[in-house]
């Protein structure tokens, strides 16, 4: 029930009502532009949508850079994760909840679990060899194409951090953004009172 997907489809019982979207409605994945998108804030802006979609890969790449280079420059798992999640937040703001659902790689809960497993696993692996928890193991290899490459276990750990931060933000956006939006929608369907169009900061 704490799953993302339950946040997006309009709850059961409402689906077959005329005028409402179908229950298993999902934003189209392949298209650049989706027609049935309703942004979270304000009127719909095609420019913003396109820009967001174009920006997403760039932002994600930058976030990975932050993650990897953290040991030497400002950055790291947190900053990387925050930047990556910013991409999705942008997407949600531009395209609304369906757009967000279309864009995320997996359910936030799974992201959280994977991140936790990754970080926890890295932390506990040394225990199996009788070493203290979280001991860092690094290995420098000479790869044919990349030259000298250092693999350190803290990178795995940082990746866990990264995943969890992304998971947190997605989960929160899903809950506090999309779900609330869905409820409003519902309420409006019901002939409810308030609409969401009240300013918008971002």
């Amino acid at each position: 029930m704490a799953d993302l997907e339950s946040a997006y489809p309009v709850p059961a019982g409402r689906a077959d009502r005329p005028g409402g979207p179908p229950e298993d409605w999902e934003a189209p994945r392949e298209r650049w532009l989706s027609t049935a998108v309703r942004p979270a804030f304000g009127p719909r802006s095609v420019l913003l949508e396109v820009a967001t979609r174009l920006l997403t890969p760039a932002i994600l790449t930058f976030s990975v850079f932050l993650l990897v280079s953290g040991h030497d420059r400002p950055g790291g798992g947190f900053a990387g994760g925050l930047v990556a999640s910013m991409a999705y937040v942008l997407r949600y703001i531009a395209g609304g909840r369906h757009e967000l659902a279309a864009g995320i790689p997996m359910q936030p809960n799974r992201l959280l679990a994977l991140g936790l497993l990754l970080a926890g696993g890295t932390a506990s692996a040394p225990l199996l060899f009788g070493r203290p928890v979280l001991e860092v193991v690094s290995y420098t290899a000479v790869l044919p194409l990349f030259g000298k490459v250092k693999f350190a276990s803290y990178l795995l750990f940082e990746s866990g951090v990264f995943l969890i931060v992304v998971g947190l933000v997605l989960s929160v956006v899903a809950a506090l953004g999309a779900r609330m939006e869905a409820e409003e929608y519902e309420a409006r369907e019901r002939g409810g009172a308030w609409g969401p169009e009240e300013g918008g900061a971002a």
Binding site: F78, V165, L168, V172, A175, L176, M180
Partner: peptide, 20 residues
């Protein structure tokens, strides 16, 4: 402080959900 910032962020989101 970095750790604290992130923890505060996490907990604040929870508080917001609660407020909602």
């Amino acid at each position: 402080a970095l750790t604290a910032i992130v923890i505060t962020f996490g907990v604040t989101t929870f508080l917001l959900a609660l407020a909602y």
